[in-house]
């Protein structure tokens, strides 16, 4: 399978504080990869580096073999191919649900309004939000917002979708509806990279689980191995703590 993203020796420091130390891993087409680990382990920073919302201090990120940290490829062009779903949804507050899913298609992909509307409606239907196209973000619930945010990212028809703790800001009763949408997407063959605290989702849905601790990837394996026989002591301690709660 073709590797979409390949990361080698990636480092990121905020000031003198190293957050990522020598990260190496890759994501292939159609893979669902979950990144788990305790808060402050660098999971979100890694995801944000992949989308260049944070610029790495050192190392390389290859997109289909092309180093995106050199200036050959425009950041905006690359970002359009990497969808991102945020913890805080970040829907555009000045636009309604439908416009949220259309604006990127029209302005960045230069699609016609009619085509953009068609695509947006398809994906809104997929996440079960097509009835709410006229609502403004401040008029819908958190779970609904996150589903619209997923539809917005999908409307750009990205090669991979990055999820940054998509359910962490939701009320417990709304987590389910978002996870259901994400499960369906995973089954449809979309490439997904998910930073999450939802261990059941990581275990049941992903092809690979990456455990991060203190800025390094401690273990990168199938969910069966990570959850049943982790090789590393730190993984074992983390999972025991989480699963015992």
């Amino acid at each position: 399978m073709g590797k979409i993203i390949e990361i080698s020796h990636l480092q990121k420091s905020f000031g003198k504080n190293p957050v990522l130390k020598d990260i190496n891993f890759s994501v292939s087409k159609g893979e669902v990869v979950c990144i788990i680990g305790s808060s402050g382990s660098g999971k979100s920073t890694l995801l944000r580096c992949i989308n260049l919302l944070e610029f790495p201090t050192d190392g390389e990120i290859f997109y289909h073999g092309q180093n995106i940290l050199e200036q050959k490829m425009t950041t905006a062009v690359y970002r359009a191919k990497m969808g991102m779903v945020f913890q805080q949804f970040n829907l555009f507050n000045n636009l309604n649900v439908l416009q949220n899913c259309m604006v990127g298609q029209v302005k960045v992909l230069k699609r016609s309004k009619a085509a953009a509307r068609q695509t947006a409606l398809e994906y809104l239907e997929l996440v079960g939000m097509s009835s709410f196209i006229d609502a403004k973000p401040n008029q819908i619930s958190g779970g609904q917002k996150q589903r619209v945010a997923i539809a917005r990212a999908l409307s750009m028809e990205p090669e991979a979708l990055l999820f940054d703790e998509p359910t962490s800001a939701l009320d417990p009763e709304m987590v389910g509806e978002v996870l259901k949408v994400m499960k369906n997407l995973a089954r449809s063959g979309l490439t997904m990279l998910v930073v999450t605290h939802e261990m059941a989702f990581a275990r049941d849905v992903s092809h690979r689980v990456v455990f991060m601790d203190d800025g390094v990837i401690v273990e990168d394996d199938t969910p069966e191995v990570i959850f049943n026989n982790p090789r590393n002591e730190r993984t074992r301690v983390f999972l025991k703590r989480i699963l015992d709660e």
Binding site: A76, F86, Q88
Partner: peptide, 22 residues
């Protein structure tokens, strides 16, 4: 909110597109 900038950038908008539309 910074999230509005980040969301616009994440779908590939340039600075001026982000300003104008969002």
């Amino acid at each position: 909110d910074n999230g509005q900038f980040e969301a616009a950038h994440s779908i590939g908008m340039t600075h001026f597109q982000t300003m104008l539309n969002i």
